[in-house]
Simulated scan of single mutants.
Amino acid sequence: MARVEAAVRSRQLIAAARDVLSREGVARTPLRAVAAEGEVPLGTLQYVFPSRELLLRAVIEDMVNEIGDVFPDSAEIEGGLANAIREGIRAFWKRLASNRKLQLMQYELTVYALRTEGQEDLARWQYESYAAVVAAWCAQAAEAAGEESAVPLPQLARIMVACVDGLILQYVCDPDDERADQDLERIIDMLVNLAAPRPLGAR
């Protein structure tokens, strides 16, 4: 069997874990199931990820990185902060948020981290990372357009995450696409009004 580079093997196993976790749920996903999905011996999985906790941490980190990739692909930052908010949230919803199984897995991982001794900080890091990704994207858009937000960008980002996260949870419970799309547009309008972008230095 050809030797597989560690980084490649790690990505392969994280992808396998995400598939199984999305399909079966966190509580019903043993390491053996992930190894089978990744088509590797259990010993290989345990060599790369010596514990279930380390594997789940890697999955959460992968999800954070995926969210970070959505925003640069969503809209040109030269369009200003309002445009970045609108197009970024729409792109996120279309690509990730409306994936019910993926979002259910994310909530399960958050609860798992909060309930597992020694893993509580992972849940906090998860949401801090989501907000940091959004804040950085908004900062780039505002800077490129010579704008500033009426509220501090870290605060704006936390509120954006909270609003979209709440809508996702409703969608997971009751996946009504038409209602979710309408509610998303109202959330976007509210967030743009909250940010109230203005020329840098204007009062």
Rank of each mutant, 00 (worst) to 15 (best):
E61L: 03
R28D: 10
V134C: 00
R23W: 01
L156E: 12
R18Y: 06
N193R: 15
Q170V: 04
W137T: 06
I159Q: 07
I60G: 06
F92K: 09
G38D: 00
I60E: 04
E37K: 04
V48N: 05
C163S: 14
G201K: 03
I159N: 09
D177E: 12
R186G: 00
G118W: 03
R100S: 13
A7W: 00
G201S: 02
R23S: 15
G68V: 09
R52H: 14
E24D: 15
R186Q: 13
V40K: 06
V151H: 13
G118D: 03
R95H: 04
V111I: 15
S22A: 14
R95P: 05
L184R: 01
E24Y: 01
V164E: 09
E78K: 15
P175Q: 07
E147M: 03
V48I: 10
P197M: 04
V172E: 08
I77L: 15
D177N: 08
G118P: 02
P72H: 06
E61Y: 09
R158C: 04
M190I: 07
Y127S: 05
R57D: 07
E128D: 08
N65F: 05
Y47C: 14
E108P: 03
L56T: 12
L153C: 05
E87P: 08
T110Y: 04
G38K: 04
D174K: 00
N65K: 00
M63C: 00
A33R: 14
L109S: 04
D181F: 05
L45Q: 05
D121S: 11
D19R: 13
A6Y: 11
C173A: 11
I168W: 10
A33I: 03
Q12M: 15
A17L: 01
V20G: 08
D181W: 07
Q170Y: 02
R124A: 08
P50V: 03
V8N: 01
A16P: 02
L122F: 08
R28S: 11
Y171S: 05
Q106L: 07
G201F: 09
V48G: 03
E117D: 15
V4I: 15
M1P: 07
Q126N: 04
D177R: 04
G146A: 07
E78I: 13
Q119G: 00
C138E: 04
V133S: 10
A27Q: 14
R90M: 02
I60V: 06
D181N: 10
E148Y: 03
R203Q: 14
E66I: 00
R90V: 08
V4W: 05
R57W: 06
F49N: 10
D19H: 09
M1G: 14
E128A: 02
A162D: 14
V151P: 14
C173H: 01
E108Q: 12
M105G: 02
I187C: 00
S22I: 08
A150L: 09
G166N: 14
W93E: 02
A141G: 05
A131G: 01
D121C: 01
M63S: 05
R179S: 00
G38H: 03
I77N: 08
R100I: 11
A58G: 05
A145C: 11
Y47M: 15
A132P: 06
A75S: 14
E87H: 13
D174N: 05
Q119F: 08
A17Y: 09
R158V: 00
G166D: 13
A15T: 02
S149N: 08
V34Y: 06
D121H: 09
T44H: 01
T29Y: 08
Q182D: 13
A15D: 08
V20K: 05
G146L: 04
R32Y: 04
V34I: 11
A17N: 04
L102P: 10
A139D: 13
